[in-house]
């Protein structure tokens, strides 16, 4: 474990806490893409298949359970909870996310570290996470003004993989034969997808104005 990866995991945890806070405090999920939440639930379920087979550390297992449980809880809230589901922007959240799932799975069948069930699903989860934010970014562009908590949620979600990139650089420099090309390349693509969001987030923070993404 290094400081970059710890910062990344804590930022990721913070993004989930901010989203849970927004849904719980406002009893609303307006501005939140359910499709992105569903993609993240699939990402965690596919990535943590080793939860019961490979024990890395208490921290590692604990965080896996937190990520799986929180993503499923959010999807449940947005689909079932009567108050929350009423505020879901169904007509704005129209990204065809099934294509993302199919494309990432096909890519994982071709590009993986080892052709085993667990490794293919791990690669699938890495590719899917890189594009999982797309429905959310499209929804933000369509829904005009973005409430603070939703904006902060997306910001922290984007920042966490940025910390992981620093972690991979650090590990590459300090550990012999450390190679994680699949995770590194996908992580760079994932963080790059947030580039314009980060720009408009910085502008709104600098001008102390409402976060607005151009349509």
């Amino acid at each position: 474990m290094n400081i970059f990866r710890l910062a990344g995991d804590m930022t990721h945890l913070l993004s989930i806490i901010v989203l849970l806070l927004k849904i719980y405090a406002t009893k609303s999920c307006s501005g939140v893409s359910r499709k992105t939440q569903e993609l993240y639930a699939i990402v965690f379920l596919a990535r943590y298949l080793d939860l019961f087979t490979d024990f890395i550390s208490v921290y590692n297992s604990f965080m896996k359970v937190v990520f799986i449980a929180s993503s499923l809880a959010i999807v449940w809230c947005m689909r079932v909870h009567p108050m929350v589901r009423r505020s879901y922007d169904k007509e704005l959240d129209t990204f065809r996310h099934y294509f993302l799932i199919a494309a990432c799975f096909l890519l994982a069948l071709v590009l993986h570290e080892k052709f085993t069930f667990q490794e293919v699903f791990w690669a699938f989860s890495i590719y899917l996470e890189a594009v999982a934010i797309l429905p959310q970014l499209v929804l933000l562009q369509r829904s005009g003004n973005v409430d603070n908590l939703t904006g902060q949620y997306v910001f922290f979600l984007g920042a966490y993989r940025g910390f992981y990139i620093l972690n991979w650089i650090y590990r590459y420099l300090t550990e012999p034969r450390f190679t994680r090309w699949i995770a590194c390349v996908s992580g760079v693509v994932q963080t790059a997808l947030y580039a314009d969001f980060f720009y408009y987030y910085f502008i709104s923070w600098k001008n102390n104005s409402k976060l607005k993404l151009p349509a």
Binding site: D9, D54, I56, N60, F67, K114, F178, R180
Partner: peptide, 10 residues
């Protein structure tokens, strides 16, 4: 030869 590395990252 890609050495099998444990998936120790989240």
């Amino acid at each position: 030869e890609v050495v099998e590395q444990p998936k120790d990252e989240l």
